[in-house]
Simulated scan of single mutants.
Amino acid sequence: MNPQEALTRARNIKLLLFDVDGVLTNGDITVHPTGDGTFTEIKSFSAHDGLGIAFARLVGLRTGIITKRHTQAVAIRTRDLKMEFIYQGQHHKPSALYDIQAKTGLALTQIAYVGDDIVDLPVLRLCGLAIATANARPQVKAAAHYITPNPGGQGAGRDAIDFILTAQGTLDQAIEQYLAESTPIAGPGNQ
């Protein structure tokens, strides 16, 4: 992992994709049974990540998720954050990556991905900027260009966004835009 190479790669990023469990959440899967034999899955997301996603949107960095699981909690959270690309139930994550690439016309070098476990390795190996969370498996950290200071569910997504926006020189601009009273993006539901 070469810090200068990671910064150079980050300057080219136009789209940031995330895994969910272990990245935007701490990886816990809480199952709450209902009376009819089904269950509700409960996930906790970091408000820091949500605010970072709002910053990204303000300066034109597109965002999305590619996750193996399919849950209503993720659908609600990604809709709330106005994420553009939502790919749940993806057993072969590169297929989703190639579909997103075809829809956007972006080169793989313009796409970053944040992952934490071996199911993320195929996408991490293809993207222009591979990011591992602090709690990632050793194999994922070994494949990463950048490792977040914080673990998943505790600000790792925000770390990734801050790293990219800092490399691109737009983090301060995003913060000031967010703080401006006239910015409709600032407010409830954007954290």
Rank of each mutant, 00 (worst) to 15 (best):
F18T: 09
A73N: 09
G157Y: 09
Q173R: 15
R77V: 09
G189C: 11
G105N: 08
E84M: 04
G152P: 01
T78W: 15
Q88M: 12
H145P: 02
D28W: 11
H91Q: 14
T67H: 02
V20T: 11
T30G: 01
T133S: 03
G22I: 07
D159W: 10
G153C: 01
C127N: 03
A130Q: 03
R137K: 14
V119M: 03
A75V: 10
G155N: 05
Q154E: 15
R69K: 07
T104F: 13
Q177P: 01
G50S: 07
G52N: 06
G105R: 08
A54P: 02
T183C: 15
G187N: 07
A142Q: 12
L15Y: 06
G152C: 00
T8C: 09
L24I: 09
D21Y: 07
F163Q: 08
Q168W: 09
N26V: 03
T183I: 04
A156S: 11
I161T: 06
G50M: 04
A6P: 04
A73M: 05
A10C: 13
K141A: 04
G128E: 00
G52S: 10
T63V: 10
E41F: 05
Q88K: 09
V140C: 04
G169S: 10
G187S: 08
G64A: 12
Q139V: 10
N190I: 00
S182K: 14
D28G: 14
L61K: 07
T170E: 06
I42T: 14
R125K: 13
D159Y: 11
T183H: 04
M83A: 11
K14T: 07
